[in-house]
Design a protein around this nucleic acid. Sequence first.
DNA 1: GTATTTAGTTAGCATTGCTAACTGTTAGCC
DNA 2: GGCTAACAGTTAGCAATGCTAACTAAATAC
Lengths: 148, 148
Amino acid sequence: MSTPRRQASRSRSIERFHHLAIRMLRGLRAVDEAAGFAGPRASALSVLVFRGPQSLGELAAAEGVKPPTMSRLVKAMRDEGLVASEAFEPDQRQVRIAASAKGRDLMMKGRVRRLAALARLFAGATPAEMRSLAAVVSLLERSLARGG
Amino acid sequence: MSTPRRQASRSRSIERFHHLAIRMLRGLRAVDEAAGFAGPRASALSVLVFRGPQSLGELAAAEGVKPPTMSRLVKAMRDEGLVASEAFEPDQRQVRIAASAKGRDLMMKGRVRRLAALARLFAGATPAEMRSLAAVVSLLERSLARGG
DNA sequence: GTATTTAGTTAGCATTGCTAACTGTTAGCC
DNA sequence: GGCTAACAGTTAGCAATGCTAACTAAATAC
């Protein structure tokens, strides 16, 4: 059922896919950087817009950084008017962080830019290739949900 | 030929794919970091191993950083015994940088770890899904070759 | 009502990116 | 040959982002 030849073919595809995913995301980061809105700021802001207001700890966990790192990042974003933060009433220790209108706007524009770049990338895909893409998406969704 | 419904479906798949690619690579980076070998060092070393010895400028260009950044990175890697560098005979201005045995070894081990993590991720893929993956790989290869 | 735990901040360090300014080498041009 | 321009790297200094350790203030436990 699972011949050596088939295994080797799997490895090649996976390895190639790995490499291409890196290149694709690198290209997208370049798009972000050209527009001057990349990195941790863009990422944190998109969490705030899509998941709604969060405590600092939640935001840090969502972004995979430690609280001090997020604390400084939030301070910088507040100074730039991208987010607002206020004490959380029920628990005065917590800080509630929310994207501002300016932050939301910036984030949405960045998102549009990124998606446009992606659409250009996939512009030449045939219908069959799009079906393959959908199959890979559901495979990855299943796998990543399992493993993290 | 290209109905609004089909367009919307394309966008959804692409967007979902984008998100999943980010998550996949984030997970892989976590694997690297757990092993204490991640980031620019790992990346530069893999260029040196796979493309062979390079000048500092070539390496900087391959990694998409400016020469001063690569200069410092090479110095750090040399201090750790991961690379060796020597003047390039035909042009004394250039520095020839090569991975050391230790560097190659470290890189190969990291690569094995990453590929093992990827193999686990794709372990549950059906043969049909693997065919879809291969189709997506060739699509991406075509697209990225075109656009960068 | 004190002690512990929890949430966030501050301080200080390492890494990685940059630009500007410098050194040394090669190439171009009379 | 010798001056000049271009090129390859390095050094210095700044900004952003990651960390740990140590602190403050609030909530909870007992």
